[in-house]
Write a protein that binds this DNA or RNA. Structure first.
Lengths: 216, 216, 216, 216
DNA sequence: GATGAATGAGTATTCATTCAT
DNA sequence: AATGAATGAATACTCATTCAT
């Protein structure tokens, strides 16, 4: 388990990467990965502040102190997880809609991407939208980033005259983000609450009509 | 274990209240009111679990133990505040829309009631929508109650054939609630972010188009 | 309830005991009696340190502060109760055995007096023999007083040559007291554990043989 | 909630214990031992509920929180101490009397074992017989176990016709246990109160005569 | 790098007691 | 004398974090 301990400092680093160094590095990365996995599982179940660093270490099968060899403090792991989650979500959304694609065409793909993400990553959904005081900064971040992306798209729409003039794009983006976040969290909690396609259809209908002059 | 003294008015007797009793009761009510005010201010600023009962007592200018002469535990004050806030919010919404009024007519009044509440009661807004783990039950309650109210109205709309068939009323109610909660919280945080009427107009436009066949 | 409050200080004491004073005095005594009764009931049920002064006042139907108009502190009421209990017990024992009566004749009456006391005053038994840290001083007192009484009797017996010389009267008195206290407490807890007369017979037999040369 | 670290030796592996693990384990055991020693000293002096976990930690020379690395709560240390004490007492009593030995022969050895225990372990005596409300369960246990042992022996005596018929064995066992417990506690408090042998002689005489027809 | 024992500040809650009315 | 609101010291228990090995 701790082979690396005895060697790491002794090797006279000749080559940039001795095999020994590689082994040590791989072991370290593996420990880190297990801590992250433990964090995802536990934060999703119980939320940030019901979980202790000891819980995470124990779930990862390492000693309590090991946690601090990998993360500065309790919040750091949460941030890492949240950042990964956000990145994955953004990536999926980007995959779903080409950046310059017509927004009209894009609504359904976005909703589908969101719902797929909720299906595949219920743990991440719970972490991202978990309504935690301590997580507020992170969550605000998630939602604000989404909102910013949307607002940006909307501005282009407006510039092209595609949106009713009464609508403020920043308000709209907050509204859409709040809507999506709530619906996705609500549905991820118990997907049997509504058929997946019906959720998508509903979101699409609201979106379509609410945001596009063609709908009126 | 012992009979509690948490209710403001213990004596069942209507009459025969001595001046001394009245004075004591008034003093008690005043202390309670100060604790509630302190709770509102502090919970709004920092959230439920960053605040200690000592903080609240200190902010109210009473001794630490006095808190427990008025509230069973830390959560109790939060509940009282949240319940009051919900009641006030509901009351305002009820005042804004007659129960059987056309939904179409009702969208704007609802948005206006919401925004007024956000203006007048920024502290309560922060508490109600503060995304706290411990407050989750309360917030879920708020939002679910709103969602239930909306879903109910929607059902009538559907029955009257006023809504597109693709829309699921439970999904829609979650969506609207998420949208409103987020927009209101976002705006209450800093009302200079958008002019009040523009927020209302935006919400109305989304609502109108999204929920009414006449808009399509 | 508080008629006396308004008059006590105003009466220009002409006679040694005005009717008003008598009334006030009686009211005060009644309050005190109710506190004592409450203390007996509650201490017997739960022991000294599970019971709060608020519990006692509430059970007596008076305000919390009233307790301190009658007793210096929490221990004072306990002492009063214990003293009364001891006095009653001593009185019963004295009633059972004439001071100079032959000890031989007295064993059965003592056992009977003890068991009767246990039957009539289960609450006091529980208080006197309740094995409480804080009550230790009091209980030690009870038992030591009993032991002293016994030791005294024994010394006379020894002087009269009625007791085996190997027996130390102080040790014997501790032994008897421990025996009695435990048996009485054990039996008072659930009198169905053994028929009353069988308990007495057993105690008598042990006593008789253990303390009297005639038995050897 | 999390897997505890209260047992001294967590690792099931017999072999493959690194020097580091051994050192840590030894350190842990040493701290635990100091906490237990502190508990014995303080509980014997002041009783369970006059002593705080901070007192124990301070007396053991460790930080307050360290207590909880070794014992789940305040009661846990007391239980550990009491269990050890009971076990040691039982062991001594078993060593003193062969199980089937004549009871007659056994009285003196029992008394001697008891007194030796009281001499060697004055702290444990005080803890075992300390008359504490919270310790009641433990003490009841001690005394009941002793009583049960005695009752068992008595039943054999009765079966062999060695005991007067007027005596109820359950009452007798309570009586003997009360007697012993009180005498031992009284004597351990200040052994100069009576010479050790005189205590033993007195106990033996009471026992002999009280329980055995051959003595009459 | 990993370990895990130790740390100690932090916190909710209790309750004997006081005192102004 | 009675009231009862206020007091504040006391205390069990938690947990993020450190550090010697």
């Amino acid at each position: 388990m701790s082979v690396s301990s005895y060697s790491a400092n002794r090797s006279g680093a000749r080559e940039a990467r001795s095999p020994r160094q590689n082994a040590a590095e791989r072991a370290r990365a593996a420990t880190r990965a297990r801590l992250i996995a433990a964090g995802k599982a536990l934060f999703a179940e119980q939320g940030l502040h019901r979980i202790t660093t000891h819980d995470i270490a124990a779930h990862a099968g390492v000693a309590a102190g090991t946690y601090y060899n990998h993360f500065r403090d309790k919040a750091a792991l949460f941030s890492v997880i949240a950042d990964e989650a956000i990145a994955e979500l953004i990536e999926r959304l980007d995959g779903a809609v080409g950046p310059e694609e017509s927004l009209r065409a894009g609504v359904r793909p976005i909703a589908e991407a969101l719902l797929s993400f909720a299906e595949d990553r219920r743990d991440l959904i719970r972490i991202l939208f978990s309504r935690e005081a301590d997580a507020a900064a992170i969550e605000a971040d998630v939602l604000d980033r989404l909102a910013a992306r949307i607002a940006e798209g909307r501005s282009r729409s407006i510039a092209r005259g595609e949106m009713p003039s009464g609508i403020d794009p920043t308000v709209l983006s907050q509204a859409l983000v709040g809507m999506w976040a709530r619906v996705v969290a609500w549905w991820a909690e118990d997907p049997s609450r509504a058929p997946r396609d019906r959720v998508i259809d509903t979101l699409v209908q609201i979106q379509l009509s609410g945001t596009h002059p063609a709908a009126s």
